[in-house]
């Protein structure tokens, strides 16, 4: 079960990082600003996911990273919502 969890949570981290990389490289190619904000969101979510991985899988009892998981997630989501609200429509 532990190995299974390890793989699942690692996959969540890697998927999140993949989103960051894909959105980031797409921003570099297209210059669409909404993609920059989306990239920043997934940077935040990736950090949050990495901390979740450490919090739940690596050090399940030793540490409590809840606050440090929430801060980057909230920052990332605020970037995303800013991008969606200001940059998602043409003209």
């Amino acid at each position: 079960m532990e190995t299974f969890n390890f793989i699942l949570y690692l996959m969540a981290v890697l998927t999140c990082l993949a989103c960051t990389v894909l959105l980031g490289s797409s921003y570099m190619h297209t210059g669409v600003r909404m993609l920059l904000w989306s990239t920043l969101c997934f940077v935040g979510l990736s950090v949050s996911n990495i901390l979740l991985f450490f919090d739940l899988i690596v050090y399940p009892t030793e540490v409590d990273l809840r606050l440090w998981r929430l801060l980057p997630a909230l920052a990332g989501l605020l970037f995303l919502l800013y991008g969606f609200i200001w940059e998602s429509e043409d003209n």
Binding site: L23, S26, D90
Partner: peptide, 17 residues
């Protein structure tokens, strides 16, 4: 017409960039 929104979805394509 909604190309910016579409660009988000297209970012997840590996090829053709």
């Amino acid at each position: 017409r909604d190309t910016r929104i579409q660009s988000f979805a297209d970012a997840f394509k590996f090829r053709k960039r």
